[in-house]
Design a binder for these strands. Structure first.
Lengths: 167, 167
DNA sequence: AGGATATCTGAACAAATGTTCAAAACAAAC
DNA sequence: GTTTGTTTTGAACATTTGTTCAGATATCCT
C-alpha cells in the first residue's frame, strides 16, 4: 500500500478513500482486467475455425502485451485472494479459456484441427501465449508482430490436422 | 520462516543453525533445484533431433511433475532474490534453455524442424510444458503419460517441417 | 464569500515477519 | 558420570505492512 501511495504521490491513508482494504483493491484489479478481457474478445462462431484461432492468438498476445502490470498481478497475486474471491476470478478466467476451447472444438469437428483433447490443447496454447509477457521487450531483436507471426505458425501447426495444408 | 519451522516441528530460531538468513535459504533451494535439473538431463547430440526433442519433452514434464514445490518456488520467488543471486539463477536457467535450443537448431539444420527463430520456439515449448504444473492433478481425468503423449504431439507438430512425416 | 462536502496528511496502532541470543536440553566421548 | 560440543527453546528486538482517524486542506455549490 505504501508503495502504491508513493507511486501515486499521496500518503497511505488517502488510498483508503478509494478502497476499503487491500484485498478489495486486488480483487477489483483482477476482476476488471478479466472483465475487460472478456469484453474485448470478439469471436464469430460462424467463421472458419482456423481464422478464429488466428484471431484469438493475435488478440491474446496484443491484449496482454498492452497490460503487463495487470497480467503480472493476475498471475502472481492469485494466491493472495480470499477463497471466495479466488473462486470468482477463476470463474472469469475459465470463461475466457472456454472461448478458446470452443474454437478448438469447432475445428476438430470440421477436421481442420486434430487434437486428442481440446482442454489440454487449450491450456497448452494459453500457457505458450501468456509466456510471451515474461520475456518480450519492445526494444528487443524482434517486433511484437514478428513474434505474433511466429507464435501463430507454431500454434497453427500444433493443433492442425497434420497434412500440411493450413500454414 | 515461522511457517517452515512449524512444518518441520521446531522453533523458528533453530532454523538459523541451517541457514544464515532467508535469502540464502531461498537461493540454495533454487540453485540446487536447477543444478539437479541440469545434471539430470542427458542429451545425445548425435541422435536424431526428433528423438532428442521427444526425450526433452518427456524429461521436462516428469522432472517438473516430481518436484512441484521446488518448481513453484523457482517461479514465484524469483523476484525476492537479491540482484546478485538473481543473475546466478538466471544463468542456470539459461543454461537449461540453451540445451533445448541446441536441439531445435540441430533439427532445423537437418530439415526435421522448421521454425523461424529457435529462441522463440524454445520459449514457447518451455512455457507450454512448464504450464502443466499449474493445473495437472494426479487424480484428474488423464494420467501423466496421457498428458505427456499429447504435449509431445503438439510440440512435435509445432516445430516440425510441415510435411506430415513426423507425428 | 461562506458553508458543505470530499480528500489528504501525519501520526499512530496492531499484527506479521526476519533475526538474535542466553539459557536449557540433548548427544557423544572418555 | 562428568566433560565437551551441538542443537533447541523461549523470549525478545527491529522492520515492515495493513489499517485507522482527528485535524488540516482543498473543492464545489449557491
Amino acid at each position: 500500500m505504501r508503495e502504491i501511495a508513493r507511486e501515486v504521490g499521496v500518503q497511505v491513508g488517502a488510498l483508503y478513500n478509494y478502497t476499503p482494504d487491500k484485498q478489495s483493491l486486488l480483487f477489483d484489479l483482477m476482476k476488471s482486467h478479466l472483465d475487460a478481457l472478456l469484453a474485448a474478445f470478439q469471436d464469430d462462431a460462424d467463421a472458419d475455425p482456423v481464422a478464429r484461432l488466428k484471431h484469438f492468438v493475435q488478440f491474446h498476445i496484443h491484449f496482454h502485451h498492452d497490460r503487463p502490470d495487470a497480467v503480472f498481478i493476475a498471475y502472481m497475486e492469485l494466491r493472495n485472494l480470499t477463497p471466495a474471491n479466488f473462486v470468482q476470478i477463476e470463474t472469469l478466467r475459465r470463461a475466457y479459456e472456454d472461448r478458446l476451447e470452443a474454437i478448438l472444438r469447432a475445428g476438430v469437428i470440421t477436421g481442420d484441427f486434430a487434437v486428442a483433447d481440446t482442454k489440454i490443447a487449450m491450456r497448452a496454447v494459453i500457457a505458450m501465449l501468456t509466456g510471451i509477457n515474461t520475456w518480450f521487450r519492445a526494444d528487443g531483436r524482434l517486433s511484437l508482430d514478428d513474434v505474433t507471426a511466429q507464435y501463430w505458425q507454431m500454434v497453427c501447426k500444433a493443433v492442425s490436422a497434420s497434412d500440411g495444408s493450413s500454414p
